[in-house]
Amino acid sequence: MVIIGENIHVIAQAISTALRERDAKVIQDLAKAQAEAGAGYIDLNVGPMKKDPEETMQWLVNAVQEATDLPLSIDTLNPVAMEAGLKACKRKPLLNSASGKSLSKEQMLPLAQKYNCDVVISVMTDKGMPPDVESKVDSIMSTVDHANGLGIPNEDIWVDPILLPIGTAGEGQRFTVLNLEFIKILEDVLPGVKSTVGLSNTSNGVPDQLRPPLNRTYLVMLERNRLYSAIADPLDKELMNLTRGGMPEIVELIYKTMDGENIDLSSLSQKEIEYVKTAKVLMGETLYSDAWLES
């Protein structure tokens, strides 16, 4: 599992200030910490970048490359900033992200071809978010076909099914379930493509202290269905430990829950019980509420 470190994110106040004041140290420290924790890529999420997109992105990429040798994921919707970022990268970068929307096909996908980089392509289209597995497959096949036409091979494409928060309008659970299914069949419908997810989106809106269990459990479940990578927090030690084979009993338990095996909770520790309960809500087996660990 390739973890794309999500922590350099403009929504974080410290990062936004550091970008504005060109304070490289704050950003470099965070890049180093993520690299040491086992990240495979460092994501640079700079948002829409209305001011000085080229110069800012260039500065940021260079600052991070001074701190780590890891490849970078350039995460912006601004095509000018995107190009500046890709140009400045020493190693083959990840363009994060393109989609099936017309504007993205015109502005982003050609950049992936031009700079010969890897590219995240989401299932979004001009029609919005495809509501079920079948329409997700249809839309990604059409966008990947378009990308192939531009000369981008499947091997460079990282498909993003788009995760929605589990509490979304009472039907977020339907999406956690169908995204599991989508990831499971992806390699069969598009041989050679990779996959990625914005993992923490699953727990968006959930009380802060309850987010890690959802993120960790879901990652194990997605990994079992052959997920290739995730944009996630590498500083979450338990999360990294789970994906690095450090907690085989927990992983086993999550798999058993996915298989619908009857699990005797009375023989389990508190932590194990929490993983089982969390897997059950992510499977859509029990109705989600913020009190899912308590009931």
């Binding site: 509490g167 309008a169 009472g170 977020g172 109705l287 989600y288 509420s289 913020d290 009190a291 308590e294 009931s295």
Partner: peptide, 15 residues
């Protein structure tokens, strides 16, 4: 009008 919040309230009250 939200089933997740509805369940949460019942869980908490039922304690």
């Amino acid at each position: 009008l939200d089933i997740n919040l509805l369940k949460e309230l019942n869980v908490k009250l039922s304690k």
